[in-house]
């Protein structure tokens, strides 16, 4: 049996699947680094998914659609930021509210404007172009796995690259990380930790909007709850990736492979479909357990306690 016939499309698919998780996790990382657990990634993605496709149809232009859709998700994120940091609400409650608002509002809006609470499908909408890379595509293995994706995939890689720079190579990133590690340091300098936390939320609004846009535009339709927990998986990816951009890339890829495998297995082995669909989530749980065990044995404090 030729393994590459089976494994290369599987990897190609994994690269595709990991993209929305990677995008959401990249933005989530910025809030995480400021010491804020942003549970609203899921809701922000859903807002992005809905408005990207709606605006793409309305304007007839893919680029404008994404731009406006992402703007809406940034606006929702900033609203959440204002309520949390200016009005001093609990971030967990505002995050939860954002998630509930997103799932309720998208369905409500779609029933009011498009007259359906179910799947939104549009005829004649612009398609997401796939990028072929000419000669790059002809490189064995590499070409088959990493080329021929739509532009969101490559954008997510660029964003991870930018995140590395922003976090580790700018004064902004330094202060952002200091905010998470010890906000008192920032206060003592006369800066406001709140500002950096707010920027973190805005950035997560931006990337979650993109992640959501990828989901609906790739499908050419909006399905209620189209995100299907990817915002939560992104949160897991942040922790699995040890809160570093490169780690997140790896974590998202592993989770992508898990989902990709579950799709392939459906066609090959006769096992209950429910189990197959649950496979990525089971993998997530296992990955988290393995991660925390690993963390436990490698943290200096535990070693000290035993020694």
């Amino acid at each position: 049996m030729n393994y590459s016939e089976f494994s290369l499309p599987l990897l190609h698919n994994a690269v595709d699947i990991m993209t929305p998780v990677l995008l959401a996790a990249t933005g989530g990382l910025f809030t995480e680094l400021t010491g804020v657990l942003n549970i609203a990634l899921e809701g922000l993605m859903l807002i992005g998914a809905f408005f990207c496709i709606v605006f793409a149809i309305a304007t007839g232009n893919l680029f404008l659609g994404i731009l406006l859709g992402v703007t809406v998700s940034i606006l929702v994120a900033s609203l959440m930021g204002v309520i949390t940091f200016k009005l001093k609400a609990n971030i967990f409650i505002t995050g939860l509210a954002t998630n509930l608002f997103a799932s309720g509002f998208t369905v409500f809006f779609s029933s009011q404007v498009f007259g359906t609470k179910g799947v939104l499908r549009f005829a004649g909408q612009p398609l997401l172009p796939r990028l072929d890379h000419g000669f790059l595509g002809s490189i064995p293995v590499f070409g088959e796995v990493f080329t021929g994706h739509n532009f969101f995939v490559y954008l997510s890689w660029i964003l991870i690259f930018l995140a590395v720079f922003l976090i580790y190579r700018t004064p902004f990133g330094l202060r952002l990380r200091a905010t998470g590690k010890n906000p008192e340091v920032i206060c003592a300098l006369g800066l406001k930790p709140m500002h950096y936390r707010f920027y973190g939320i805005l950035i997560s609004g931006f990337t979650c909007g993109l992640g959501g846009g990828f989901l609906s535009l790739r499908l050419n339709a909006f399905v209620p709850e189209i995100t299907a927990g990817r915002g939560w998986i992104a949160l897991v990816a942040i922790y699995l990736g040890n809160k570093t951009p490169v780690g997140i890339l790896g974590a998202a890829f592993i989770l992508g492979i898990a989902e990709s495998i579950s799709i392939y297995i459906q066609g090959i082995i006769n096992i209950p479909a429910d189990f197959v669909l649950a496979f990525p989530y089971i993998m997530t749980v296992i990955a988290l357990i393995v991660y925390s065990i690993f963390k436990y044995y490698h943290s200096p404090e535990n070693n000290k306690g035993e020694g």
Binding site: F165, R169, T170, P171, G173, L174, R175, R177, A178, K181, N182, E184, V185, I186, A188, L189, G190, L191
Partner: peptide
């Protein structure tokens, strides 16, 4: 200098010292 340390343990000495007054190159890079 405050009574209690205002330091980020995970940062290097240099990073702790320059925080808030970071030297910049190319306009944006730390």
């Amino acid at each position: 200098v405050h009574q209690h340390f205002k330091l980020v343990p995970d940062f290097s000495i240099a990073e702790n010292v320059v925080l808030g007054a970071e030297p910049v190159k190319g306009g944006i890079f730390f």
